[in-house]
Simulated assay, not measured.
Amino acid sequence: MFDHVVFGVSDYEASKTFFIKALEPLGIAIVSERPGGVELSSDGKVSLCLLQTEEKPAHLHLAFVAKHREQVEAFHRAALNAGGKDNGPPGLRPNYSGKYYAAFVIGPDGHNIEVVCHEPEN
């Protein structure tokens, strides 16, 4: 659906480090970087861009797709190790759907970062 998503961060280095470590289990890595900005992608087509800003951005909810539930769990561990705050451990969310398996972490700027798998358990 998206070509790219761009949002501002208050501490570029902290946010860049957090997102690289937290999203590594999904195969997401740096595609390009310039002073104060980084583009991350897993396929080179859809990307997430972080930019240093002095503005106080509103909190976002970003949800990334996982291929399997183990990626959700790996994301949660990696994000917490990268300094994120738990906002919902890996698990089924039956109030969304019977197969909605997700984890939520608050990132450096207060953004709610989610990884969700819609596939049944292996």
Rank of each mutant, 00 (worst) to 15 (best):
R34D: 04
L40E: 03
L40W: 04
E39H: 00
G36F: 02
F64S: 09
E33V: 04
A66G: 07
E33H: 04
S47K: 07
V46D: 13
Q52M: 10
D43N: 13
K67E: 15
L51V: 14
V46R: 13
E39Q: 03
V38C: 04
V46T: 15
E33I: 02
S47E: 01
E54F: 00
P35M: 02
V38G: 02
D43S: 02
G37L: 07
L62Y: 12
H68K: 12
T53W: 00
G37V: 13
A66F: 11
S47V: 03
L62S: 01
G37W: 03
P57K: 10
Q52I: 08
K45R: 07
S41C: 06
V65I: 12
C49R: 03
E33K: 06
K45Y: 07
L50A: 01
H68D: 14
H68N: 14
D43V: 02
K56Y: 10
H68V: 03
S41W: 01
E54P: 00
P35I: 08
Q52P: 08
L60K: 14
F64A: 10
K56E: 15
K56N: 14
R34M: 07
G37T: 15
L50I: 05
Q52S: 11
G44T: 07
G44I: 04
S41K: 10
S47C: 00
E55I: 10
G37F: 02
P35S: 04
H68M: 08
H59T: 14
S42A: 03
A66K: 06
V65Q: 14
L50N: 06
P35Y: 12
E54R: 05
L50T: 05
Q52H: 11
H68I: 01
K67P: 05
S42Q: 09
E39P: 00
C49N: 06
P57Q: 09
L60N: 14
L51T: 13
G44V: 04
G44Q: 10
V65W: 07
Q52L: 08
E33P: 09
L50Q: 06
S42I: 11
H68W: 06
F64W: 14
P57D: 08
G44H: 12
L62P: 10
L40N: 08
A66I: 13
H59W: 03
L50R: 04
K67C: 01
Q52E: 14
F64I: 09
P35K: 04
E39L: 01
R34N: 04
E39F: 04
P57I: 09
K56Q: 15
V65F: 04
E54D: 13
L51R: 08
R34K: 11
V46L: 03
L60A: 13
K45P: 00
D43I: 09
L48G: 00
S41T: 15
G44N: 09
L60R: 13
K67N: 15
L50P: 05
